[in-house]
Amino acid sequence: MLIHTAAEYDRYLRTQKLPTVWCPGCGNGIILKAFIRAVAALNLSQDEVVVVGGIGCSGRTPFFLDFNSVHTTHGRALAFATGIKLVRPELTVAVVMGDGDSVAIGGNHFIHACRRNIDLTAIIFNNMIYGQTGGQLAPTTLPGRRTTTSMWGNIEPPFDIVRLALGAGAGFVARGTVFDFEQLSEILGQALAFKGFAVVEVLTTCPTYFGRYNSNDDPYDMLHGLKDRTDPNEATMAEKLPVGIFRNEPRPEYTELYRQLVEKLGGGGQR
């Protein structure tokens, strides 16, 4: 069901836990809303959805969502989610992570989840900085940018999460931004419906730290900056950062392969 009104959104929120911990002007709330819209459009029951978060600003997302909420340790959200999904394949499991969570401390779990192709939806909040800890360098920070641990300008090249996911074998790979809400909720819907490991990188904004350290902390300007940096029409590796769906190719999914193995061995019935 397509939802529009605040009351319709509230059904999926733990309203008593609001406001969120996110700063004024932060883009994360837009992802939260896009996620709710995608879940509602798929008519998923709240009891059948698990939202697993890591550590960081993004990791707090599960607390505000009225689903089965799991807030794990830094970088390990995918590993926790893998355990949940393996024993409860009937549940829809979404994993919300930050850029540090997913491709720094949790990089190993990320590439192996891609390789294993387990039916999880990984939603990566990429704000190109460590927000919760006060603005340190992220593995996605662009060269030259300033953070509290790269005050002279970053000299490291960043990860391109989309290319990383493609290379590691994820079946569904997409990128959206908090500038384009419509596209983002559409992508998230497709990712949640995808049978296999789905990666959605969401470019979001952190005015408080990234903006402040890099000479423009106006939330409006930062949102429009995302628009200027990205190309919504050409979902290919172009000069601008492309957004859209880069791969949507189902291949054998892990819990399904495991179910077939159990069946072949005559071990069904216990789960």
Binding site: F80, G83, I84, H109, G269, Q270, R271
Partner: peptide, 21 residues
């Protein structure tokens, strides 16, 4: 063959995390 789940994880951190999940 008993209907349970076995996972060879990518490391021990993933192992314990998957166990808890």
């Amino acid at each position: 063959r008993r209907g349970g789940v076995f996972l060879q994880a990518e490391d021990e951190i993933a192992s314990i995390s998957a166990v808890i999940g």
